[in-house]
Design a protein around this nucleic acid. Structure first.
Lengths: 152, 152
DNA sequence: TTGAAACCCATGAAATCCCATGCTAGGTAA
DNA sequence: TTACCTAGCATGGGATTTCATGGGTTTCAA
């Protein structure tokens, strides 16, 4: 699982260290790296391992081949996604258009969300988090563990 | 999987570089190149490796041999498709009739859609993508990965 | 013989690889 | 408990390779 938050620097070459915890989640599979795409409803990036993208693909495959919504998903997800492989020290090179979408300049904040993660500008994320915490507090009664809680 | 978007130039000879990521998807098979056909519902081209065409063929084979729909599929897909092989530097020569169908002049935009890809004129695609993003945003609640977690 | 397609080579930019450095946390020994 | 040591991690910069692109030359068929 991708958990916790970490802010790393984005250097002049567009390189960005992926937190070691996150790397451990995706290494050992077919592709030694991550997949990232722009968030559909805000200035952030979303991503995970290739397996995550494949699981979205499985959902899309269940839809009619020429359904407009299916095509929209295919274009916004697959069309906009980028495969970024790790260098020897665990960094990826972030394409300019993705950095711009998220408004990233000198640093980037990784936020683990369980099965996937997001990348935000540090300050933008601060504001977003404050709102999220408020909503979580207001809705806290909806949060309850499923049967037989503590996994592993 | 074919993912991400890239715009390459279409030179005076009709040559077009296929993005390296896309080439990697199709090389190593029987045929070292791609297969392309005109999009049925718009000014774009659609294609993939020979394996993609074979999978469509398998679907068509399940239909009644004299079904009008089957014949229509056979003609629009197999009849219009072209096999384009790579030159030493990974380019293909795009036939004029295909370039015209997609309204391509000086450049072409490759869009990966998972199991296949499309080729658009850059500006035409910009407008198409904007609509797709709007619909994807409005329908984003339908988007959820299958197969529990997406780890690994 | 003339046009088109395939092949060969050159070039600039961008991505990738390689090596070095500082920092921090965790463990070990005095 | 404290000082030290070490391993893992993030970061910086230079070197090398890959990739897209342009132009020339050869080959083949109409």
């Amino acid at each position: 699982m991708f958990i916790s938050t970490a802010t790393n620097t984005l250097d002049a070459k567009g390189r960005l260290s992926v937190p070691a915890d996150f790397r451990a989640e995706v290494t050992g599979g077919i592709f030694d790296g991550i997949v990232i795409w722009p968030g559909v409803d805000g200035p952030y990036l979303e991503g995970g391992g290739v397996a995550l993208l494949q699981s979205y693909g499985a959902m899309i495959n269940d839809m009619d081949p020429f359904d407009d919504v299916r095509l929209a998903f295919e274009h916004t997800l697959f069309g906009a996604a980028k495969k970024l492989s790790f260098d020897a020290t665990g960094r990826v090179t972030l394409p300019k258009e993705l950095a711009e979408h998220a408004g990233l300049s000198a640093s980037a904040t990784f936020v683990g969300l369980g099965s996937r993660f997001q990348i935000w500008d540090k300050d933008t994320y601060g504001a977003h988090l404050a709102k999220a915490q408020e909503l979580a507090k207001a809705s806290r009664h909806l949060m309850r563990p499923r049967r037989s809680g503590g996994d592993t």
